[in-house]
């Protein structure tokens, strides 16, 4: 029993140490702009532009459901224009960033872990090193940078789409007028709602891509190992997003 606790503790400390080393290596690679500059643009397209359909699809239906559920909850007790408040606040503060983050943890995190894992087990990462490239500059920095920059943009568009579908639902299904919806939307709006959601999205983007890279580059054991890494990346990213979500709410919204 003591032996098992000891081994787990040592394993945990080693994992934290590896993570710290990884972050330090990433920071060290930042000045190598000639290597990661062009690659970052490619990754921004993959992480950002290619992720838009899934993020916008989720946001569109979330806006519809939010409006309908708000109306169902408020009927007879709260003025209906509060539907605009609820749709706006919830999309900006919570559902926009978190749902997009969870969806992209599957799409982006899994694909990064699989790609880097395959490169690791087929010695492509070793080959990069023998060609005098730093894998951190070539593989990690472009991906993490792309995730951190593009996630807030994707989430901002998703929030806009969610609010628009909430507004259209209010117009067509709840008989709420546009001025009423906008009144609700503006009622409790603060600029903090916007930057909080976008800041949170940037941290989600950073986390998902970092986890994808760390897990991918520590892959061992051929195709089976790549499969394990892919699953791990999605699970770790999803857990990290939920924990971070609670953390930022506790730190910034109190």
């Amino acid at each position: 029993m003591i032996d098992r606790i000891g081994r787990r503790t040592v394993g945990l400390i080693q994992a934290v140490g590896r993570w710290g080393q990884f972050m330090a290596d990433m920071v060290r690679a930042l000045p190598d702009v000639t290597t990661w500059g062009r690659l970052a643009l490619v990754q921004m397209r993959r992480v950002g532009v290619d992720s838009l359909p899934v993020a916008l699809f989720i946001a569109a239906f979330t806006g519809v459901v939010l409006a309908l559920q708000a109306s169902y909850t408020f009927t007879g007790t709260v003025p209906l224009y509060f539907v605009g408040t609820l749709v706006g606040k919830t999309m900006m503060l919570e559902l926009g960033p978190v749902l997009a983050g969870l969806a992209l943890a599957g799409r982006v995190g899994a694909s990064m872990a699989a790609e880097l894992g395959t490169m690791k087990v087929t010695e492509q990462v070793d080959a990069l090193e023998t060609l005098a490239y730093d894998p951190q500059s070539f593989l990690v920095v472009p991906r993490v940078l792309a995730g951190t920059v593009m996630f807030p943009i994707v989430v901002a568009l998703a929030v806009l789409v969610g609010i628009m579908t909430g507004w259209m639902t209010s117009l067509w299904l709840l008989n709420l007028s546009t001025p009423e919806f906008v009144k609700g939307l503006r009622q409790f709006y603060q600029f903090k709602d916007t930057w909080f959601g976008l800041f949170k999205s940037a941290t989600f983007g950073f986390t998902i891509t970092t986890v994808g890279c760390v897990v991918g580059l520590s892959t061992r054991g051929g195709a089976e190992g790549v499969g394990r890494s892919t699953t791990r990346a999605v699970v770790y990213s999803a857990v990290a997003i939920l924990v971070l979500d609670a953390f930022w709410a506790a730190v910034l919204l109190r």
Binding site: M119, T122, E123, Q124, D126, A127, E129, T130, L131, D134
Partner: peptide
């Protein structure tokens, strides 16, 4: 150190078992 190792690697060509092509 890293720079010296990269300088050394520039003098060496490495052919991997399964080629390790990108």
């Amino acid at each position: 150190d890293r720079d010296a190792l990269n300088a050394l690697r520039r003098e060496i060509g490495y052919v991997f078992q399964f080629a390790a092509l990108f």
